[in-house]
Simulated scan of single mutants.
Amino acid sequence: MTDAALDVIGVGNAIVDVLAKADDAFLKTHDIPKGGMLLIDEDQAKTVYEDMAAGVEVSGGSAANSIACIASLGGKGGFVGKVSADALGDIFRHDLRALGVEFETKPLEGDGPGTGRCLVNVTPDAQRSMMTFLGSAGLVSADDIDESQIARAAITFFEGYLFEQPEARKAFVRACAIAKREGKRSALTLSDAGCVERQFDELKQFIPEHIDILLANDDEAKALFGSDDIAVIADKARKMCELTAVTMSEKGSVLIPRDGDIVEVAAVKPPQLEDTTGAGDAYAAGLLYGLARGYELETAGALGSIAASEVISHVGARPEQPLKALAEKAGLL
């Protein structure tokens, strides 16, 4: 570990994506819902994994994808997440560290579950059918929070998916307390409308107490604030935290500061739309990087749009082109 400052440190699910080509017969054999996502146990994961065609294995997970994008922007990122001491855990750690990301969380050892994985079978019609085994990813605890690491980060960023795990939530609270003590900011992405609905009361209490920057798409915002009217959302959001960002796909996004007018941010049309997986993760990266560097809201939001546009222009949730170069070309950096 170094003593260098971090722009953003993410706390989230450490998941390895295993992608392979498949046909409809394979999906039927393993009862995989076409185009959907199914949570499975470790035995199922091992069985399907062994039967899958040769493919690629790359580290994923929402917050980790955001941190990868921050590295692509030229920023310094860190990550806190739980993998196991196994081959997939080694892949996850290698992929993040190869990007220059600081990842020091100790792996889970012993008889516990293996590293979390998402088995993605891609059929000839480009449908992605997913089966996810969370494994050790959900076992982040308060003991995994390094006080000095959080203190070095301008923003600590939490993944809503992980908020559902009670022990991980304790880690969130500890990290937020450290960030607040050091005069730094904490951010949360809501991740999924279903998460919001399941954790509604807990989120309504947690966000005002601990979160400075809230990120949501329009569905998640509607679930949390009970409306799709931006004026109603803004009124409720301002009472909840310092800044709220709501993304609306091709309609762009809005940034709602507690004090000040709503900032509208245009979407950036991709050269081609291939795969929307990871769009929200990339937007979060651009926005948070901009805020960590002290840019105006308009610029930070535009960085989010640039990052999201690149990620949806190809298959996969991480950038293939350097985001820093794209942002420089657009005059944002």
Rank of each mutant, 00 (worst) to 15 (best):
D192M: 08
N121R: 06
S309Y: 04
E310K: 09
R185N: 05
L287G: 02
G331C: 02
C195G: 09
P270H: 14
S62L: 09
N65Q: 00
A292G: 06
G89D: 08
I211P: 00
A302E: 13
I213Q: 07
G10M: 11
V120E: 01
I178F: 08
D261Y: 08
L134Q: 13
G135W: 04
K34L: 00
V83F: 04
D143G: 04
L291C: 08
M1Y: 12
I230N: 08
P107A: 10
L273Y: 06
M130F: 04
I15V: 12
S72M: 07
S191P: 02
R185K: 15
A267P: 00
M131F: 10
A168Y: 00
K106T: 15
M37N: 05
A142E: 15
K28R: 10
H94L: 14
D235F: 07
D201L: 11
G78F: 12
G89A: 03
A154V: 09
Y49M: 12
K269S: 14
T156K: 00
K204E: 09
L323C: 07
A279F: 14
R198V: 14
D259E: 14
S62H: 10
R117Y: 05
A153V: 09
G77W: 07
V246Y: 04
L39Y: 13
D23V: 08
M1H: 14
E320L: 15
G81R: 05
A153K: 01
S253N: 02
D90W: 02
L215V: 08
E147F: 12
G81H: 00
P271F: 13
Q199D: 11
E250R: 11
M240P: 02
F79A: 06
Q165T: 12
G160Y: 06
E102I: 15
L287V: 10
